[in-house]
């Protein structure tokens, strides 16, 4: 199926899918980066869903991680005279020229998920999540749940130096600041992967008295948490009760772990960036309402009481 979708994307990029048979209120071109991660595939799925729901004719172009493909796609959207353009930029720089062209053609551009370095009058608005806020939500959950008990936290960081790792760490630290009973005792990078998450957690367990001194695990993404949960189980401890597990992203597999009582909470990085973007576009088209330059998506907290099994069923078909 995915191969077909990719092919369809390539066909669209070649400009062969000009115009759909269904008459629509609005035609929107969407230049997507590619499908390098499950999250991005889900973003594409949800963008299509949202467009269909609102009767928007969506023209999709997959750039396969190349900026030049995105620039070509935007030029072809302009030539086709679309009503608006959604852009998930692969890099931050080098967009001035093509954004000028869109502006001259009076086509509003909405940035999804990532930002660009261009002046902000070249695009209508940017929709994205606040990485630091995600870390704060995770930290706040822990603060609310441990109460006055002493709690030693181990942290699995994302790839060293990446902005999600830096900001999710900072946000979490902000949330637990002032709560002296909570302390981060160990912090290492797990490179956002399951394998490294498991390996690093094994060493944390060895270093902290077989895991008996660890009260909670904070992982910068769910995949590392899933790996760490296996390490905790193999060490003969119960993840979710002996060691609390809180992570970020809300990918389907963490909901399975939550349903089994092995993970406690996750903060959603929503793949539905298109919803708020279409809201803003519709308001703008209707009566010229200018949206704010940055629309922050909700960082929703999911816990074991949110029926994780149902969320898993809902999420598993979104292409993660």
């Amino acid at each position: 199926m995915k191969i077909l979708k990719t092919l369809a994307g390539a066909v669209a990029m070649a400009g062969l899918m000009a115009g759909s048979a269904v008459a629509a209120d609005m035609t929107v071109g969407f230049s997507q980066i590619g499908s390098e991660s499950g999250w991005r595939a889900a973003e594409t799925t949800l963008t299509r869903e949202q467009a269909e729901k609102r009767g928007i004719d969506l023209k999709f172009a997959d750039a396969q991680q190349k900026q030049e493909n995105q620039i070509k796609a935007i030029r072809s959207f302009i030539a086709q005279g679309v009503d608006a353009i959604l852009l998930a930029p692969v890099v931050a720089t080098g967009w001035d020229q093509v954004l000028e062209e869109a502006k001259d053609a009076e086509i509003p551009v909405v940035l999804l998920d990532r930002q660009v370095d261009s002046s902000d009058d070249l695009y209508l608005t940017a929709v994205g999540s606040d990485l630091e806020h995600e870390g704060e939500v995770a930290g706040q959950w822990l603060v609310d749940n441990v109460g006055d008990k002493d709690c030693n936290v181990v942290e699995l960081q994302g790839t060293t130096g990446s902005s999600p790792a830096i900001k999710r760490k900072a946000g979490f630290e902000k949330a637990i600041a002032g709560h002296d009973n909570i302390e981060i005792v160990r912090s290492q990078t797990g490179d956002f992967t399951r394998t490294k998450g498991k390996e690093v957690m094994e060493s944390f367990l060895k270093a902290e008295n077989g895991g008996k001194d660890i009260c909670a695990l904070y992982a910068h993404n769910d995949d590392m948490a899933v790996g760490a949960i296996q390490a905790i189980k193999e060490a003969g401890l119960k993840p979710g009760s002996d060691i609390l597990v809180v992570s970020i992203d809300a990918v389907p597999d963490i909901f399975l772990a939550m349903a089994a009582g092995e993970a406690n909470a996750t903060v959603e990085l929503t793949p539905n960036m298109a919803g708020p973007a279409f809201d803003a576009l519709e308001a703008y088209k209707k009566d010229g309402t200018m949206p704010p330059k940055f629309i922050q998506t909700e960082s929703k907290l999911f816990t074991q009481s949110d029926d994780p099994k149902a969320v898993y069923e809902e999420k598993k078909n979104q292409g993660y």
Binding site: T160, F204, K206, A207
Partner: peptide, 14 residues
């Protein structure tokens, strides 16, 4: 690798 993980240095040094 394991020694570095056990040592508890900040990951920037790994």
């Amino acid at each position: 690798n394991t020694g570095i993980l056990l040592a508890g240095f900040p990951p920037e040094f790994n």
